[in-house]
Design a protein around this nucleic acid. Structure first.
Lengths: 204, 204
DNA sequence: GTTGTGATACGTACCGTTCAGTTACATTTC
DNA sequence: GAAATGTAACTGAACGGTACGTATCACAAC
């Protein structure tokens, strides 16, 4: 249980005395897994690019799968914190909160380094039930779905669950379409489609 | 160029005299790649499950990547033929044709063996530009996008391109959401969301 | 103030396995 | 007698993973 403490790399002061091996490994793995895919990246490449050695990896992580799961957990926590912050910043009114969520995803996809959702990508790479990484993905996606349906239920719309799921389809679709078409493809229609879907549920 | 001829395995008659090695390899690879992922399946497993040997694989295919690309081509051709047939069967009216396309995807996702779109999955597994499999994916997705935009342009709607892209987001989103949530998740809202999006563009 | 000593952190070198791909040759099938 | 396939071994690289040696630092003892 203490293993994760080391990942923070809290050196408290000093002039960048080179991060701890575990931290370097973790950050490098996160980057490589996201950019190139998880199965496509071997542990040798991770330690090489992190400037450390393999035993350092296995001292801090039980296995590659463990490292994968911890990276995905990090992605999930980061993503959830971002959308929660974005929703809160939109104030108390339900509609602006929902639109803030849409805007957040639209901006995220406009980032130059964007290469889809790390969770959705992992779900494709690990179809086998029970994979440690898959569990993280499932709980994260479920949490997001609950956030969205929580927002639509606060709205005065017909069938808020259907609206929430429709919006999730648009979000996931934009993630996916980005892989093939980039940000100028169908993903560019994301915000407008989401707004249309919302208003079609609103005007009853 | 003759290599593909063998894949049809046209034995013309006889009582199932065991298919040709290339055919068995091809069909087995298609199945395994789709069910388990491309990177997760090795050539040894393919030839083992196909009941053939490795030299037979490399006599018919230049490499694993070549086999991957040919499998993806097959998926693409099959998919395109299905949606074209479905659209044609819907008659000459543009709206029923578009709705037939939506219905097709909805039915496809209801299949028990459904595990997302082979093309979209491959795009996640092979992010590197220029991969032989990726070229197939890109041309296929582009062709589908052209089909959809062709259908929406035939409709009297405002911004048919935006409608087409919105529908593509819903389709891709349903593919993607299916990986995590199965057919009972957000993907179940696919048809209704598509209909709402279409009518929101129609009533102008 | 130098010299033990133990714990932490890390690297060197290697393990066995699996990967994609190949070879030479024997066997089946038509 | 070709053409297609199987047998059995192999290559070299990459894979995930590990036994073991070494550097570093804190804290003590002398």
């Amino acid at each position: 249980m203490r293993k994760l403490d080391i990942l923070t790399g809290s050196d408290s002061g000093c002039s960048e005395p080179r991060k701890k091996a575990a931290t370097r490994i973790f950050e490098t793995a996160r980057d490589l897994f996201y950019r190139r895919g998880i199965r496509a990246v071997g542990v040798d490449e991770i330690v090489c690019q992190a400037g450390v050695t393999k035993p350092s990896l296995y001292r801090s992580f039980d296995s590659k799968d463990d490292l994968v799961a911890k990276c995905l957990e990090s992605f999930a926590a980061e993503g959830m914190a971002e959308i929660d912050a974005r929703i809160e910043a939109a104030g108390p009114e339900p509609l602006p909160r929902l639109k803030a969520l849409i805007a957040h995803y639209a901006e995220e996809m406009a980032n130059p380094g964007f290469r889809g959702c790390p969770m959705s990508n992992a779900a494709v790479e690990f179809p086998e039930e029970g994979h440690p990484g898959r569990l993280v993905v499932e709980s994260c996606k479920t949490a997001v779905r609950e956030r969205v349906v929580g927002l639509t239920r606060a709205l005065s719309v017909d069938d808020p669950e259907a609206l929430a799921d429709g919006l999730i389809l648009l979000i996931e679709g934009a993630f996916s379409a980005h892989h093939v078409f980039g940000s100028q493809g169908p993903a560019s229609a994301f915000s407008r489609a989401a707004e249309r879907l919302i208003s079609s549920h609103l005007k009853v």
